[in-house]
Amino acid sequence: MQFISHHEQQLSLSDTDKPQLQPNEVLVKVAAIGVNRADCMQRQGKYPAPKGDSPILGLECAGTVVALGTEVDSNWLNQSIFTLCSGGAYSEYVAVDAGQLMQLPDSLTMVQGAAISEVYLTAFGALFQLGNLQQGQTALIHAGVSGVGGAAIQMAKRVGATVVITAGSDEKCQHAKQLGADHVINYKTTDFAEYMQHHQLTANVIVDPVSGRYLNKNAEIAAMDCQIIMLAFLDGRFAEVDFARLLQKRISFHASTLRNRSQAFKRQLRDEFVAMFYDDIANQRFDFNIYKTLPWQQAMQAHEILERNENAGKVVLEVQ
């Protein structure tokens, strides 16, 4: 099979053997691949694959099941699916744990399916498993028009929360409004803490891939018992922390990643997400927030889009 190899930070098509299936796995013929910042970091040598995962890039895809492991229900054969992957999605074929598959609704394209798994499951875990977001509460979502941000906006609104986002341009803020955000803040022109204080807003759940200098600002506008979920540290690894404010408001701080979670965790996350939101996906109540679709031969251009922070939404590669 062909796959996209990475060498000296460059991407190119190469050849390798198809993956061998474990008893719990299926072989997926890949039709479309979701591109994520983790892929860029792995290409740069900053985020190696966890032990046991495929060294090939790619954490999500949509495609067709073409072969089954010995323990897999035969009903999956020839099904169109979308799914998380333990690496390996940047290829013509990928082996996937059958317990993480989600059936692609007839109403969705492969490109749409490839834009869902990583960002929706990450946002779901942050908002609901860790954040316990409830109807009537307020969610603050930093990087609000990223793939995760766009998914978080829509799921938070679906359960009846008020949504505040930050983004880096007026155009991105407008895009977030179209996705359903109630308050949009251009962080380059407006201090989000001052904005929220002026509008008498406090956050019950904060989804934050920025961290760094945002930590104390988050604490300023946090509600009592606020849950802060850190997904990355785009502003840097280190920060001074006002622990008195964290104690005063009984703030809980979670550092969360999805890639290195156990198979059992990912299966449970998938099951809870499907139970809560699969009907919304099948009935296209969500905008899958696709910024650009490219042929997989242009994977390097896709990475450059993310690295320039150009995109408002997902970039998807089509396998052609």
Results as ranks from 00 to 15, higher is better:
L77T: 00
G34E: 09
E8Y: 07
L133N: 11
E310I: 00
Y90A: 04
A89G: 01
P55I: 07
A299T: 00
S107M: 11
S107H: 09
G58V: 00
R237Y: 11
Q284F: 03
G63E: 07
L201T: 00
G150H: 13
V163I: 00
I165G: 13
L247V: 10
T257R: 11
D191G: 03
S12E: 09
F243E: 09
N75P: 00
L269N: 11
P48Q: 12
Q301V: 02
R37L: 14
G212F: 05
A232C: 04
F277E: 06
S5F: 06
K46Y: 05
D225H: 15
A275N: 06
E60D: 08
D39I: 00
H6N: 14
L140S: 03
E60M: 06
E272G: 02
V94R: 02
F243Q: 13
N216C: 02
A282P: 07
G150S: 13
G63R: 07
P50Q: 11
D271W: 04
L179M: 08
V163Q: 02
A152Y: 12
V145S: 13
G58W: 08
N132K: 15
T109W: 12
E272R: 14
Q2W: 07
L201K: 11
S256F: 15
L108V: 02
C40W: 03
A167D: 15
E92I: 00
N309Y: 05
L294N: 07
I221L: 12
I141V: 01
T162G: 08
Y195D: 04
G52D: 09
Q248R: 14
I221Y: 06
N311Y: 06
S14F: 05
T83R: 03
G69Y: 01
Q20R: 08
L231F: 05
G69N: 07
V72N: 05
A264D: 13
G150L: 11
G45M: 10
G136S: 09
G69M: 06
N204V: 02
A223Q: 06
F233R: 10
L104E: 05
H303Q: 15
Q112V: 02
C85L: 03
Y47R: 07
V207G: 11
T138H: 09
R261D: 01
L246D: 05
F286L: 13
C40K: 01
T293N: 10
G34S: 10
F277R: 05
Q268R: 12
N78P: 00
A264W: 04
P50N: 11
Q298D: 12
T16Y: 07
N289F: 13
L201G: 05
H7D: 14
E60G: 03
A312R: 02
K266S: 11
Y291C: 02
T109F: 12
S12K: 13
R37M: 14
L258D: 06
V96L: 04
S107I: 06
P48Y: 14
I81R: 10
S252M: 10
G147I: 04
D15L: 12
L215R: 06
L84G: 03
V163F: 05
I33S: 09
S146K: 04
G212D: 04
E25N: 07
V207Y: 12
S5Y: 01
R308I: 00
Y47C: 11
H199T: 02
L77D: 09
T138D: 05
E92V: 00
A98C: 10
Q44F: 04
A62I: 01
K172C: 13
T293L: 10
L130P: 00
L179P: 06
T16E: 09
D279K: 15
R245V: 08
P19S: 05
T122I: 12
H198G: 04
L57A: 02
L294Q: 05
G147D: 09
N186S: 07
